[in-house]
């Protein structure tokens, strides 16, 4: 831990987008997605415009587009739903290549796909250009309650530690010849999760004691001394 390694989605860079104030970026993301979500389904040109705008930001950010596109997989389950839409929706039917589809469903499926994808791309751009520490600073400036910023800070700081602990437990299980294959093996995996909880909780207690011994009184100025 320690020196400025970003999280998994972060793409190191020094572009104007990277350097922009985090609270401005957060507000821009929120504003952009709100506008996208509020746009009527059949304003096709508007969606093109949004995509161009987003593409311009990505170009300025110097994050390779393929880097972002690869990470679009988060939306896959949802894409399946959007693609099903023309088949399951109600309303007047229309024939496309000999298949009867719902008109409203086609439009709704398109809108879900367009809005969802634009939202994910915008979020990915923020994640790729903002370090977690800056994000916390941005949220703090946006008046997110101190407590919540602190909790989030601790979570971000320790998520890799806890994740690695879980990975080591898996390696330990596998090196003893155990791989979970069906629900009969759940008790073993669940015991690992239980152990992980105890370790996380106890780590939390140790962290708290270490903080108290260094003068922690319940509030801390995070990132303000950068």
């Amino acid at each position: 831990m320690g020196q400025g390694h970003g999280h998994k989605l972060h793409f190191h860079g020094h572009s104007p987008v990277h350097r922009a104030a985090p609270h401005h970026k957060l507000l821009a993301l929120l504003g952009f997605t709100l506008v996208v979500v509020a746009t009527p389904k059949d304003w096709f040109a508007a969606y093109g415009l949004y995509l161009l705008l987003l593409a311009a930001v990505v170009v300025v950010s110097t994050v390779p587009p393929t880097y972002l596109l690869k990470r679009l997989v988060v939306e896959v389950p949802f894409v399946v739903f959007a693609l099903l839409m023309p088949f399951i929706a109600t309303g007047p039917r229309v024939e496309v290549l000999g298949v009867s589809l719902s008109e409203h469903g086609l439009l709704a499926g398109w809108a879900l796909l367009a809005k969802g994808t634009l939202g994910v791309l915008a979020s990915l751009t923020l994640a790729a250009t903002t370090e977690p520490r800056d994000l916390l600073l941005g949220l703090e400036r946006l008046r997110l309650p101190q407590q919540l910023v602190q909790i989030m800070g601790f979570m971000i700081r320790y998520v890799d530690v806890v994740g690695d602990e879980m990975r080591r437990m898996r390696i330990a299980r596998e090196s003893r010849g155990f791989t979970a294959r069906n629900p009969k093996h759940w008790p073993v995996v669940a015991r690992s999760a239980g152990a992980l909880f105890i370790r996380s909780y106890e780590r939390g207690e140790r962290v708290h004691l270490a903080m108290v011994s260094r003068g922690y009184t319940g509030s801390l100025r995070q990132g303000s001394d950068r």
Binding site: M152, V161, M166, N182, P183, V189, S200, M211, Y216
Partner: peptide, 25 residues
């Protein structure tokens, strides 16, 4: 006053367990 570190660590635990796979078959 333990809220921040404790809740933070438990949040990290919840996040990690959401990545723990339970095979259904």
């Amino acid at each position: 006053d333990r809220t921040a570190p404790m809740a933070g660590l438990v949040a990290a635990f919840v996040f990690a367990t959401q990545m723990l796979n339970f095979p259904v078959g």
